[in-house]
Nucleic acid binder design. Structure first.
Lengths: 228, 228
DNA sequence: ACTCGTTTTTGAACACGTTCAGGAGAGGAA
DNA sequence: TTCCTCTCCTGAACGTGTTCAAAAACGAGT
């Protein structure tokens, strides 16, 4: 059966990503060699390149894993409350916990992602899967809450929250404060603002503004070459 | 005389930077090898490494040259008007013209600079010289204008304008529109806003806000490891 | 069981950034 | 001139990311 072979290939692939991430965490990105990754995974260098086009492409595997871990870690806070602010805060803090071991690597990864057209960009076609996972998570954050948002923004709100999440991540990348105090402060300060914005979106006064949101998003989407 | 030797060394140094930049423009950063740079400059690879610690350090030379060219190119518009908006616009457009040949490289350079702690960051100690040249240029933009700004921000305004300049540059890096139409539009749209802010800074009503500016700048300065 | 095409794996080879032990040359002191 | 020292320069060698031709493993059809 072809199933068995495919499963073994999948396992090899995972083994390589796992080895890479472990070594990255241990020694950092630059000081981890492809030879070391291959050896740790018990495969040849060439085999690693069969699955991943480059060393940087291994980071894509990191994104996938991180998104998965985030969804799993957010389950507890999401089960605990229907208050939008609490759900949002819990989800962001869950990400912080999950990403913590990679904080030292984040600068290197972010720098690569910052390059226009780089596949590691969270907006790239290559990042489609983890991006959709995150957006779906934020959809869950909203839909499981007691807040009702304006019709005009409902469809786009999950994506907007994900962009907000990206903003927090950007701050986190540069945050060298002990125990990420400054990032936590940013979350605590901004989550209530976001929640209030969601609530107020239904106010008649703000409807015209709300109506502009999808347009703005559409315009932004035209700028980068993301497929989805 | 030691002067002669030093002059020759300086010339070699320049030769290497010039060769590097020419090749970077021609083939891009990655596809330019240190061997090619050395050969074009007529020196050995080791000699290039005598002057520059790494390939990336050559980019520092690019910053220096760019800042110098920018100051030179801004002289004409600065001589032509005392209107702050025109002076600012002229200075920004001069930068656009000077930087144009490097637009394709900018993404790569920016990505490196985005890495926390990277010497290529415009805020780093290593970028001190070009940063000061740019800040001085914006001081000239203000002081040669007819606008009088509030006492509270006068000292910091050149640096603030430089930060505004950096914002434009960031946009420019990602701008793929024909003839940089979108960046030009951004300049045209924001220059009047900046000018108005400068004028209004003397309004009694805005003084308390103006007073917070130096504090905010000081706080920001604490965040990054820049020396000056 | 044999064959054939496909997927997976190997490891040597290559190109490039970087290092280093040492050589060449200039300037100053005797 | 001769010697010393310091700056400038050389090119071979090393480590690392990446490629590639060939082998091995696998699955399906006969």
């Amino acid at each position: 059966m072809a199933k068995l072979q495919a499963a073994k290939a999948q396992r090899t692939r995972e083994l390589i990503v796992e080895s890479a991430l472990a070594l990255f965490r241990e020694r950092g990105y630059e000081r981890t060699t492809m030879r070391a990754i291959a050896e740790t995974a018990g495969v040849s260098v060439g085999n690693a390149y069969y699955y991943f086009g480059s060393k940087e492409e291994l980071v894509q595997g990191f994104y996938d894993q991180l998104a998965g871990d985030h969804v799993a870690a957010a389950a507890a806070p999401l089960a605990a409350s229907t208050d939008l602010a609490e759900r949002l805060r819990g989800t962001l803090l869950a990400w912080l916990a999950v990403a913590e071991p990679y904080h030292a690597l984040a600068g290197r990864f972010f720098a690569a992602a910052a390059q226009p057209g780089n596949p590691l960009s969270p907006f790239s076609a290559e990042s489609h899967a983890p991006r959709e996972a995150e957006v779906a998570l934020y959809r869950e954050v909203i839909e499981g809450s007691s807040v009702r948002v304006a019709e005009e923004v409902r469809a786009d709100l999950p994506e907007l929250l994900w962009l907000y999440h990206l903003g927090i991540v950007l701050f986190w990348v540069y945050d060298t404060s002990a125990d990420l105090r400054r990032t936590r402060a940013l979350i605590d300060r901004t989550v209530p603002m976001v929640e209030r914005l969601c609530r107020l979106s239904r106010l008649r006064l703000l409807r015209p503004l709300a109506r502009q949101v999808p347009q703005l998003l559409a315009e932004l989407r035209d700028q980068d070459p993301r497929t989805s």
